[in-house]
């Protein structure tokens, strides 16, 4: 058997060996991206490097991400430009929608302020008129007793034992009623 190997053949053999033994993807996405950008923290560097050396799929992905970095940067720049274009257009559209509503809102606000002012003036003028005209039948006339609840009312006169008031009352309730 000829056991001839060059570096490429050795590398292929090593990759086949690690593909057989690597198992599922072990590094998290943030670590893979950091490894591609060369920004893995020093304390994790050796562990991450060991994993990449042992896993051809993760190694391939990290190398691919490293190459893709410039394209991702370009896309991010283009998307920011898109956001600005879209944002300006959105702003203009919102202004077109908002302007009539704002005008309507201003009218309603002024009408509300006017109504409040009228109500305050009405209350204030009523307050001014009331106490100066206490004897009249205005809104301050409640200090006068109502006849329904007065003790002089003829309905309550009998129970109050006022003999003068019993004369001329309904005979049905008179004790000396004799049926005539």
């Amino acid at each position: 058997m000829v056991n001839s190997m060059n570096d490429n053949r050795l590398a292929q053999l090593y990759r086949d060996l690690t593909a057989r033994d690597a198992g599922p993807v072990a590094l998290d996405v943030d670590t893979l991206v950091a490894a591609a950008a060369g920004t893995v923290p020093a304390y994790r560097r050796e562990a991450v490097a060991s994993r990449l050396a042992a896993s051809p799929s993760e190694a391939d992905l990290v190398r691919m991400l490293a190459v893709l970095e410039d394209d991702s940067q370009a896309l991010a720049t283009d998307l920011a430009r898109y956001d600005r274009s879209h944002g300006r257009r959105h702003e203009r559209r919102m202004q077109r929608i908002a302007a009539p509503a704002a005008r309507r809102g201003a009218k309603v606000r002024w009408a509300g302020v006017g109504a409040c002012l009228m109500a305050v003036l009405g209350l204030w003028s009523g307050h001014r008129i009331g106490p100066s005209d206490g004897s009249s039948g205005g809104i301050y006339a409640e200090h006068k007793s109502d006849r329904i609840f007065t003790t002089r009312d003829s309905i309550f006169a009998w129970s109050n034992g006022e003999p003068g008031t019993r004369d001329g009352q309904d005979k049905l309730f008179r004790s000396e009623f004799n049926g005539s």
């Binding site: 996405v29 943030d30 893979l32 991206v33 591609a36 950008a37 992905l61 991400l65 893709l68 970095e69 991702s72 940067q73 896309l75 991010a76 998307l79 920011a80």
Partner: peptide
């Protein structure tokens, strides 16, 4: 959208 976010989406 930063480049690192886009890279994470791909990864």
């Amino acid at each position: 959208f930063h480049a690192s976010y886009i890279q994470r989406v791909v990864a």
